[in-house]
């Protein structure tokens, strides 16, 4: 899924990055420290951010991308505020974890490994989380949901939506 990076909303961080580039552009081999700075600032590397870096350091954008994708430290998709991980280990799988994953994907409209455009949720499937006797298991952030069935998925997700909304009203 394409995630739209909002340059306006991130203007302050973009300025930070640009200042960092400006200050250090003469340092030899500074591309990786700049990428690290950007990863730290934004939590991931959006295409627009990599283009800013390419222009700022006057290196081809292909090289920026090539370098960034080489190192596992750099990520290209923001994680959501709430990370929903669904165990797809054997025990959970036989108890219908795949169905649950599909349900979560349907409700959120994103795929495994992706994040919703509002940055509220992301989905991560994992292998065994060590609670096989409670299969199928869903984790939302640090909260464990045991023996989940398809019908409950909606309610689980709703819980986190509500929390966020309440927060907005404060």
């Amino acid at each position: 899924m394409d995630f739209k990076f909002d340059i306006e909303k991130n203007m302050e961080k973009v300025r930070c990055l640009e200042t960092f580039i400006e200050k250090n552009r003469q340092v030899p081999g500074v591309l990786i420290p700049v990428l690290q700075e950007a990863q730290g600032l934004f939590g991931y590397l959006a295409r627009e951010v990599m283009e800013i870096i390419a222009r700022g350091l006057d290196v081809p954008v292909s090289k920026v991308f090539g370098v960034a994708t080489y190192y596992t430290q750099f990520t290209f998709m923001p994680k959501g505020e709430n990370d929903i991980s669904i165990c797809l280990g054997t025990a959970c799988y036989v108890k219908g974890a795949q169905e649950i994953l599909e349900e979560v994907q349907n409700i959120l409209g994103i795929k495994d490994g992706e994040t919703t455009p509002d940055l509220k949720f992301s989905i991560t499937s994992t292998r065994c989380v060590g609670d096989c006797s409670l299969a199928p298991v869903v984790l939302v952030n640090d909260d464990i949901y045991p023996n989940v069935n398809k019908k409950e998925v909606k309610d689980i997700i709703a819980k986190y939506k509500v929390e966020v909304e309440c927060y907005d009203h404060l």
Partner: peptide
């Protein structure tokens, strides 16, 4: 100080050097 970015092979001398030079640490 230069920080490694998650590539084991960057422990190899020439890969490490490539990485300090700002390249893919191969």
């Amino acid at each position: 100080l230069r920080l490694g970015s998650g590539a084991f092979v960057c422990g190899e001398g020439t890969a490490l050097i490539e990485s300090i030079e700002g390249k893919r640490g191969m």
